[in-house]
């Protein structure tokens, strides 16, 4: 494993250093771990990894440090349970409360629901957030920890970009990826079972 410390460095330097480290791995491939302190740098690193056909994932560490792991070639891959024979379960969450009635109760219920989701074995393949549901993946959401656990278990977490733009929380995305409607429709269409909240 090669570690690249790109803390305090502005784009494009983190991407250049990561790319050089990946190239240095040669034919047999390997793992490059990059430390950055800006989510935009994280996004640029993952954009590069995806573009070059590498798998990548990231973890939010303490003090704003983000650890991006990029796996290149050589048969090793980021362990992912999101496969064809996974649960096939897609959960679509279009609101930040659950059920009709008191909004206060609704907030408690949706938090409980997301907590319970991460107990599911196997986990959902996708959890989709849109409209007021997109607040749940924002950095001030109280479900962030549970959603990150889900993500770590292999669930793909997508939030509608039109929605985060509308609520002006795009920059505050705390977990998963921004998706467009095409991505959301593709996930729903590929579901074996779909739960709508």
């Amino acid at each position: 494993m090669t570690q690249v410390d790109a803390l305090g460095l502005a784009c494009p330097i983190p991407v250049i250093r990561a790319k050089k480290a990946l190239e240095a791995l040669g034919e047999e491939g390997g793992v490059v771990v990059v430390l950055v302190d800006s989510d935009i740098s994280r996004q640029n690193l993952q954009k590069m990894a995806t573009g070059l056909g590498y798998q990548s994932e990231y973890m939010q560490k303490e003090n704003g440090v983000i650890e991006v792991t990029i796996v290149a070639g050589g048969g090793c891959a980021v362990v992912s349970q999101t496969t064809e024979d996974g649960s096939g379960l897609v959960v679509a969450i279009g609101r930040d409360t659950m059920g009709e009635g008191s909004p206060e109760l609704g907030h408690i219920l949706i938090k409980g629901f997301i907590y319970a989701l991460q107990e599911l074995v196997p986990p959902p393949t996708h959890v989709l957030f849109f409209n007021s549901g997109s607040h749940l993946t924002s950095s001030d959401s109280n479900s962030l920890e549970d959603l990150r656990a889900l993500e770590a278990a292999g669930t793909v977490i997508l939030t509608c970009g039109t929605c985060t733009n509308y609520y002006e929380i795009t920059e505050k995305l705390g977990v998963g990826e921004i998706a467009n409607m095409y991505g959301i429709v593709t996930a729903m269409a590929g579901a074996k079972r779909l739960i709508n909240i």
Binding site: V15, S38, I40, K47
Partner: peptide, 10 residues
């Protein structure tokens, strides 16, 4: 070659 700026990603 991914010589990209932060602003472009924003």
């Amino acid at each position: 070659d991914y010589l990209l700026t932060a602003a472009a990603q924003r």
